[in-house]
Structure formats: C-alpha cells, structure tokens
C-alpha cells in the first residue's frame, strides 16, 4: 500500500528501523473481525432488513471508492479494507429499516466527500462513516426518526409502563429522555435495561443490538494494540461521570445509544484522531463531554455523531497544543 498515487519521494527516516508485522489491510481486517460478532448478531435478530442495509452500505462504499479511483485515474485502493470498514460502520449506525437508497447515498457520501476528495485513506480529516451518517441524518432526519413506527420495532415491556404506550417503539434512550422531561414519572427503571441493552436490544440502530459484543470487540482491539485505550476510556469515563453528575444512571447512559460503537470503533479512527497521547486522552474526554451534554441538554436524543465529528475537527489543533516533550535537547534561552 505504499503507492498512494503521489510521486515517489526519497524517504529519510531516523533509526531504529523496526519493522512491524501490521499492514493497513491487517489492521482493517482486525477491526472488521472485532465488529463481526455484533454485526452477525444484529442480522440474526433483525433479519432481512438488516442484511439489506449491510449489503447496500458495504457494496456502495466499495463501488464508489472503485468508481472514484477509476475516474480520477488513481491506483485502485478498494482492497485495503478501509471502504469495507466505513460501509460496515455506517450500516451499524443506521436503523435496520432505513430505505436502501438512503443507505446508498450515505455510503457514497462517506467515501467520496468523507475520504476521496481529501486524497484517499490517510488524509480524511473526519471519520468517513460519520460524515455519511451526518449527511443522511441532516437530509432525511424525519424519515429516519419515523422508521420505528413502521411496526418492525417491538414495544418495550416495562413493569408498570402504563402511559408509555404513547411512545412505544421508541428507543430506550428516547424513553429515558421523555421520562426525564416528565420528572421521573412512568416508573421507567433504567437499571432493568442493562440486560436487554447488553444482549438483545431491538430498538435502535444495527450497532446497538448488543453492547456486550461491542465491548468484547473493543477490548480485543485494545489488547491487540490496534486502538489506543486512551480514547475509549476518556470517552466512556466522561460520559459515565457526567451522566451521573446530571442525576441519571451512568451505566445505562454508557450502554444505550451510540456511545460504545463511537468510543471503540469511530472515535479511534487513526486518521481523524490526534496523534499524541495526551491529545488523545483530551480528545476522548471531549467526545464524552459533548455527547453527554448533547444528550441531556440538546434538542436531539443522541449526539454521538456530532460529538465525534466536532472532536475530529479539533484533532489537529489538539495535536498542536499537546506537543510531546523532546528529550535530549536543551531549551535555547529558556
């Protein structure tokens, strides 16, 4: 993958020259592997619509990358696996009943506007999957938010739900927000939601079906040192701490919505996250703070997409602020 379409330059690197076994493709395949159990489980639970959404997102992502490279007369890059990851992540951020053409537009925008116009993999300033998701959310937010009423989603059985019938079919996060607005009426027990959120949650996007599988996949990536622990720890930590501070249940707020998918798989994108360690920690915390404040005080039920895009935008600035100390040099004149 050394030839990215630029002219070849003489590279002078300082020693030590230690060759790592990882390649771009092997890392991407590890990410796909870590997401696979959660994706497979969501297909089992949601059936055909989920399979269609996955197929359309991944297929369009690969096709638009191939088409762009062909049109721009650049070397073909679809085998590096990054378009596969982008398509997969986009599908997991969408509800299963998303109309196929919305999925397709999202995937095409993700690849073309999110990545290829900047020069391809390694140069995108924002996470491509989130660019695609933000685009369809802003364009067809009404369509996406009305999807659950089409009857696919089941009513959540909550003990003493009573008046919840009015919003049955909504995500647990939306119900929690409605309950919060109503000052804790309805008897919606957040702690009772841990188990369905961890194992089998049919209300929400494809990536929210099982939080347990997402956590397992994320931990594998941290263990393999493919992602830096600072970003998910900062993200999830800030989210838990703030939601506790806002008087809600921290565990529920971490498990529900897009936090886990975002913290482990989206915010950790190499290209659009900061490079230095301290900057990564601050970046992760920033994502969590934005997400928590957006969830509790914003106008939308969830703000993971915008939290990560916002911090993607800040990443270069954070890199400039948190420059690591250079050892072996003496500061000139203080």
């Amino acid at each position: 993958m050394s030839d990215t379409g630029q002219e070849r330059r003489l590279v002078v690197a300082v020693p030590p020259h230690i060759h790592g076994p990882e390649s771009c493709r092997s890392i991407m395949l590890w990410v796909v592997g870590a997401l696979a159990p959660a994706a497979a489980w969501s297909m089992v639970q949601m059936g055909t619509p989920a399979v269609v959404t996955y197929a359309v997102c991944i297929g369009t992502a690969l096709a638009s990358e191939a088409a762009w490279n062909a049109l721009a007369k650049r070397p073909q890059t679809i085998t590096d696996g990054s378009a596969l990851v982008t398509g997969l992540l986009l599908a997991m951020s969408l509800p299963p009943l998303t109309p196929w053409w919305i999925s397709a537009v999202g995937a095409a925008v993700a690849i073309v506007l999110g990545k290829m116009v900047f020069g391809g993999l390694g140069w995108n300033l924002f996470n491509p999957a989130l660019v695609g998701r933000a685009f369809v959310l802003l364009s067809w937010g009404g369509v996406l938010s009305k999807l659950p009423s089409k009857g696919w989603y089941r009513t959540i059985d909550v003990a003493g739900s009573g008046s919840l019938d009015a919003i049955s079919g909504a995500t647990r996060l939306a119900i929690a927000a409605a309950v919060r607005m109503a000052k804790g009426g309805y008897g919606f027990d957040l702690a009772a939601q841990y188990r369905p959120l961890l194992l089998r949650n049919l209300e929400g996007s494809l990536g929210e079906v099982s939080a347990a599988l997402l956590i397992a996949g994320g931990l594998v990536l941290i263990w393999k040192r493919i992602i830096d622990w600072r970003i998910p720890v900062g993200y999830v930590g800030a989210m838990a701490l703030l939601s506790w501070g806002f008087g809600s249940d921290p565990i529920f707020n971490v498990l529900a919505g897009g936090v886990l998918l975002g913290a482990f798989f989206m915010a950790t994108d190499y290209v659009s996250s900061p490079m230095t360690r301290n900057a990564r920690l601050v970046y992760g915390i920033g994502c969590g703070v934005f997400n928590a404040v957006g969830r509790f005080f914003g106008s939308m039920p969830e703000s993971t997409t915008f939290a990560i895009l916002f911090m993607n935008g800040l990443a270069p600035l954070l890199d400039r602020i948190f420059v690591p100390r250079t050892f072996g040099w003496v500061k000139r004149d203080g």
């Binding site: 933000a134 914003g298 916002f310």
Partner: peptide, 10 residues
Amino acid sequence: FAYVGLAGWF
C-alpha cells in the same frame, strides 16, 4: 456538520 449537533443546546 459538527456544529449542527450543537443546535438547541440549553
């Protein structure tokens, strides 16, 4: 796009 996510805060 990212700033749209701030709309309506507080």
